[in-house]
Design a protein around this nucleic acid. Structure first.
Length: 421
RNA sequence: GGAGAGGUGGCCGAGUGGUUGAAGGCGCUCGCCUCGAAAGCGAGUUUACCUGCAAGGGUAACCAGGGUUCGAAUCCCUGCCUCUCCGCCA
């Protein structure tokens, strides 16, 4: 969320930002409620000051064994008035917070303007589309033929949108996860964490999944816990409500987790195969950095995600997301889209975002530059490094052979132990 | 799951109704001292919000939420968490 003071002092910039994002946001209503809150606070604090000093006098009188009844009565009446005002405040404050949460982060000035995702800008391409002397199959056909992806079993035991990897498929998936984690920890300086896959309501709220997207999450009802939709949720919340030391920054976390998404409303789209499933694996990078470094850190984050694709020798392109397609909390975002020759299209495998202080304010993640300095909010970033199903799609489809077999990418061979699936 | 104990500032640790935002110690910051350092001495050391041009003033917070009271870190209730013992279990 944005800082109330910032909204008050930069109302126009906030309005413009929401417009650019095509997100309706009633800034005036927020300003009005803020005004009301402040006048209420001022009044109630005055009354409390009176109560405190009168109450102190009561104490003195009673100690001196003098009669304090009329004073007591006076304080009691003050107390009633305070109670009323406090209750009104207690009603307004959550409402104000909620309205503030409805205002999106402001896009960075470098973000290209746009009307829809059509206006996203392809910045560059890496590698070339692989050529085939046969018609490349889509991954679901490869998967079924080789018996490494089983859709029926997934549907049987869990439901549509769940899959079972078997044999070389399961093994390849595990190797890919290993490979990514190893790269990010040993070459990119990340600390690996293995968080819980189920989190509480506060955690889901801290990163913004709740209350707005409750219908997208799987809920463990008796315990009011939620299956994580991405590792971003537990990992970003690791430091929730903390004040970090300057020497701790920048913090780089990488986590492998499964991700669970109900995808309510997404059913029936052109999502054959495993492009969009309810449970998938992902390696996620999360950064907490000093504000002045965040845009530089976004570039390295992007590069680190690209490194994975390059090591796997998969053709991809880098897309700069335009203002209209930018996520609600994002100030700037790049997507990596990998080429899937069997599907004849690009698939988003990574999304690298700079949230500036928007997410950190909501989650209360701060740092102190030195012992005397005021705490400041960190900037948070995250990026997939990478999403497994779509990486798997790209590998299967790009490395397929005329005989139906799939070659194992060079970098994975030592780990995998053989050169075909 | 059963029984018990406990949750106070960066840390340790006092505090059971009235200038206690909180003793004392440690740590940390600044200053003095020193060629420099240590020791020693002195000062300072939570956060959020409101108000003010500023200096400053004020309110709130001792796990969280309610309650009692003129007044609560201190009393009562509920919840959460931690620890110990028992049970169960990958």
């Amino acid at each position: 969320m944005l800082d109330m003071k910032f909204v008050r002092e930069n109302a126009d910039a906030v309005r413009r930002g929401a417009e650019l994002k095509k997100t309706p946001a009633d800034v005036n209503a927020v300003l009005a409620l803020d005004e009301e809150r402040r006048s209420l606070v001022t009044r109630v604090e005055e009354l409390k000051q009176q109560r405190n000093s009168l109450s102190e006098q009561v104490g003195k009188l009673m100690k001196a064994r003098e009669n304090a009844d009329s004073l007591k009565q006076q304080v009691r009446e003050l107390g009633d008035e305070i109670k009323g005002l406090d209750e009104r405040l207690a009603g307004i404050e959550p409402q104000l917070r909620e309205m503030l949460l409805g205002i999106p982060n402001i896009p960075h000035e470098s973000v290209p303007p746009g009307e829809s995702e059509e206006d996203n800008k392809v910045l560059r391409e890496w590698g070339t589309k692989p050529g085939f002397d046969f018609k490349p199959l889509p991954h679901w056909e490869i998967g079924e033929k080789l018996g490494i992806i089983n859709f029926e079993q997934g549907a049987k035991i869990s439901g549509s949108g769940f899959i079972v990897y078997a044999g070389g498929g399961a093994r390849l998936q595990r190797m890919l996860i290993n490979f990514m984690l190893d790269m990010h920890t040993s070459q990119h300086g990340y600390q690996e964490v293995l968080p819980p896959y189920v989190v509480n309501r506060d955690t889901m709220t801290g990163t913004g999944q709740l209350p707005k997207f409750e219908d997208q999450a799987y809920c463990v009802k008796p315990d009011d816990l939620f299956l994580i939709p991405t590792a971003e949720v537990p990992v970003t919340n690791l430091r929730r409500e903390e004040i970090l030391g300057d020497q701790e920054l920048p913090l780089y976390y990488v986590a492998y987790t499964p991700c669970f998404r109900r995808e309510a409303g997404a059913a029936g789209r052109e999502n054959r195969g495993i492009t969009r499933i309810h449970q998938f694996d992902k390696v996620e990078m999360v950064k907490m950095v000093r504000p002045e470094d965040s845009y530089k850190e976004l570039e390295t984050l992007l590069q680190q995600a690209e490194d994975v694709l390059q090591a796997l020798n998969l053709h991809y392109r880098v897309v700069e997301i335009c203002t209209a397609d930018l996520g609600f909390s994002n100030a700037k975002q790049y997507d990596l889209e990998v080429w899937a020759p069997g599907m004849d299209r690009y698939l988003e495998v990574s999304s690298c975002s700079n949230f500036t202080d928007y997410q950190a304010r909501r989650a209360g993640i701060r740092f102190r530059r030195d012992a005397k300095a005021k705490p400041e909010f960190v900037h948070t970033l995250n990026g997939s490094g990478l999403a497994l199903p779509r990486t798997m799609i790209a590998v299967l489809e790009s490395y397929q052979r005329a005989d139906g077999q799939v070659t194992i990418p060079d970098v994975l061979r030592p780990m995998f132990g053989r050169d075909i699936l």
